[in-house]
């Protein structure tokens, strides 16, 4: 298999050239399938790092962190954005496709089964009681995740103001998310305009 020359134009124009020609679409699929099937309890990013950086050595930590920053800025879940970016780097378009399908597949099948079971047994008293506990625990979990993310990325008082404005817009004023995102987002980007950014980050 002459991998490099056989690639379509789309891939060869990629700025992120594959790290190594011997990483096949199949092995990308299998690695992401494994991550998709074993990453219980959220925090897929940690599983991605241990699988892709530590175990496989497909990307280094610096590249991984850069992809993570892109994933967090763009809409989309971190896990699927990371899959697309790493898959693209390893094997272009088909690498990205294999990675995102594989990371979603196990959870999707599981939730299909869970959803069907819930529909047939969800109204049983014991199930309802347990699900009330699960939902409450989920609130604690997502709040913890949000706080941990916030600790990492909120450095200044202005950040808290932007957080507050966003929450106020969505939760109190009942504005749709895109409107709040555009309004507060533009405000925050302008606040951190390039010159200001240099001052603040120093």
């Amino acid at each position: 298999m002459s991998d490099v020359s056989a690639k379509p134009a789309l891939e060869s124009s990629s700025p992120a050239a594959p790290a190594s020609g011997d990483i096949s679409v199949v092995s990308i699929f299998l690695e992401f399938l494994l991550i998709g099937a074993t990453s219980f309890g959220g925090g897929v990013v940690a599983y991605l790092r241990s699988g892709l950086v530590i175990k496989r050595g497909w990307v280094d930590d610096q590249k991984f962190v850069e992809y993570l920053a892109i994933s967090q800025t763009l809409p989309g879940l971190n896990a699927t954005n990371m899959a697309v970016l790493v898959g693209d780097r390893l094997r272009g378009f088909f690498g990205a496709l294999a990675a995102i399908v594989a990371i979603c597949l196990p959870g999707a099948v599981l939730m299909l089964i869970a959803g069907a079971l819930y529909q047939s047994h969800g109204d049983k008293p014991l199930v309802t009681a347990m699900l009330r506990g699960v939902a409450a625990a989920a609130v604690g979990l997502i709040l913890a995740t949000t706080i941990q993310l916030g600790k990492k990325s909120l450095a200044h008082v202005y950040d808290l103001i932007f957080v507050g404005l966003t929450v106020f817009g969505v939760d109190r004023l009942h504005q749709s998310v895109p409107r709040v995102l555009i309004a507060v987002g533009i405000l925050a980007i302008l606040w951190y305009h390039p010159r200001k950014f240099r001052e603040v980050s120093q």
């Binding site: 920053a69 967090q72 800025t73 609130v139 997502i142 709040l143 995740t145 949000t146 993310l149 916030g150 990325s153 909120l154 202005y158 950040d159 808290l160 932007f162 957080v163 507050g164 404005l165 966003t166 929450v167 969505v170 939760d171 998310v177 709040v180 995102l181 507060v184 987002g185 925050a188 980007i189 302008l190 606040w191 951190y192 305009h193 390039p194 950014f197």
Partner: peptide, 20 residues
């Protein structure tokens, strides 16, 4: 950098609104 930096508090705000 401005976009990356500016959108992160907005993202946290959206997550908090989801929590609520």
């Amino acid at each position: 950098n401005s976009i990356q930096r500016g959108l992160s508090p907005v993202a946290i705000g959206l997550l908090l609104a989801g929590c609520l």
